[in-house]
Design a protein around this nucleic acid. Structure first.
Length: 368
RNA sequence: CCGAGGGUGGCAGAGUGGUCAAUUGCAACAGACUGUAAAUCUGUCGGGCUUGUCCCUACGGGGGUUCGAAUCCCUCUCCUCGGA
């Protein structure tokens, strides 16, 4: 990537719970909690918003509870913006337990077998009830491997559903003052196919959304085609609207995507890998990620498995460049011990550390 | 001292004549994790090398029966539980 192709954007996104500067990363709070962390912890890590999930919150705690608390913000006590995913990813991840028709998707809960039917309109309704600041349309995220004709069908359904979401959203939010109105984002599908990505991007743009997401890249083979998918998609999206790469990713994927013109990210990696004892470490070039196109984005960091035997006597910090609580107070040996005995403090400290890594990475990318 | 039941790989615990270097769980060691069915999943886990349906050593010790024993018999030893 040469310097001319460095397209880092600094947008401001206004939401009912405050404005956001791009590019940013959203910690994942699928069920209304970033696993193991309090909102206070998240503020200290300088998180600016979190992601919740329509499908999960709809089932638990359910809308009755959410309504009682006047929305998810008050329930989970997070007063900054929340983006909610529509349940579209569950179309993919629960593929064994679902059935799609044009009307919507029926899911059966893996544990109980209990059936639920989600439609584009229902998804919007739930997200409005949650009080989400950024609402995602329900999309069809095809599994992989997947034939081109199946991807094509998913693109077409995604467009039809997006239109329904938009119409329903307009109808439901017509009376809400602009400053309190949530944003609605469309989601581009199309797999790894140039023509389908372009078609999807164009169709969504013509419907008109407050922002556009690139979906269907996070898991499996499509990830290998990330740069291509962005090239196939971004030219057909409006310049002045935020772009959100759903579900990614590794640091190098995020850095490269920011430089390709993506503004928003979310990913389970920092928290999940943290809970599993994988810790991200800043390398020397970490601070320069936005400055030079010559920086290899894969080399700005490394990863350790803190449970490895070699750390049992290691008195050093996890990451000497990190300002998180873990790195300010504890040794590698102690964190390893916490993991070995299975204390939940281990997961909490590691999640915080990894999130701090991701969030600081975004800070570096915001200041060109 | 008598009666009964036991001693299996780091631990727990299967296996009661060949398909057993030995099920399984835990521990240990390593790996994976991408819009969270994920505090989860995978692999290795007696030793050796010429990595082979290979060789050694091994189911408390010793001896025996058998073509063949962790498995059957004898003996020693140790543990547990009842009774003196």
């Amino acid at each position: 990537m040469d310097s001319k192709s460095n397209k880092i954007r600094n947008l401001k996104i206004d939401t009912p719970h405050g404005s956001l500067k791009t590019p940013f990363f959203m910690p994942i709070a699928t069920r209304g909690v970033v696993k193991g962390l309090t909102p206070n912890d998240l503020e200290k890590l300088k998180a600016t918003l979190v992601l919740g999930n329509t499908y999960h919150l709809w089932l638990k705690p359910g809308l009755k509870v959410i309504k009682k608390f006047n929305g998810l913000h008050k329930f989970m006590r997070w007063e900054k913006p929340i983006l909610t995913d529509s349940g579209g990813f569950q179309v993919f991840s629960l593929s064994k337990f679902r059935k799609i028709t044009d009307k919507g998707v029926s899911f059966s809960e893996p544990e109980s077998g209990k059936k639920h039917f989600l439609t584009p309109e229902k998804s919007i309704d739930i997200q409005l009830t949650l009080g989400s600041d950024i609402i995602m349309v329900l999309d069809e995220c095809p599994p992989w491997p997947c034939s081109k004709s199946e991807v094509s069908a998913a693109v077409e359904r995604t467009t039809r559903w997006a239109k329904r979401c938009k119409d329903y959203f307009v109808e439901k939010t017509g009376k809400i003052p602009k400053s309190e109105k949530p944003l609605l984002f469309g989601i581009v599908q199309g797999g790894v196919h140039k023509d389908l990505r372009e078609k999807s991007a164009r169709e969504l743009t013509s419907i008109g959304f407050d922002g556009y997401a690139v979906g269907g890249v996070a898991v499996g083979e499509p990830r290998e085609y990330l740069k291509k998918v962005l090239r196939y998609t971004l030219p057909f999206l409006p310049e002045n609207k935020p772009r959100y790469l759903m579900g990614l990713g590794r640091p190098e994927e995020i850095i490269d995507s920011v430089k390709a013109g993506i503004d928003m990210f979310d990913c389970v990696i920092p928290t999940r890998e943290g809970r599993h004892g994988r810790l991200f470490i800043r390398e020397k070039t970490f601070g320069k990620i936005s400055q030079s196109s010559k920086i290899n984005s894969k080399k700005v960091y490394s990863r350790i498995n803190i449970e490895n035997e070699k750390y049992s006597l290691d008195k050093s910090k996890i990451d000497s460049q990190c300002d998180c609580y873990l790195c300010q107070n504890y040794s590698r040996a102690y964190l390893r011990h916490l993991f070995k005995i299975g204390d939940t403090l281990a997961m909490r400290l590691a999640s915080e550390h990894n999130l701090r890594f991701y969030l600081e990475m975004m800070e570096k990318l915001r200041t060109k």
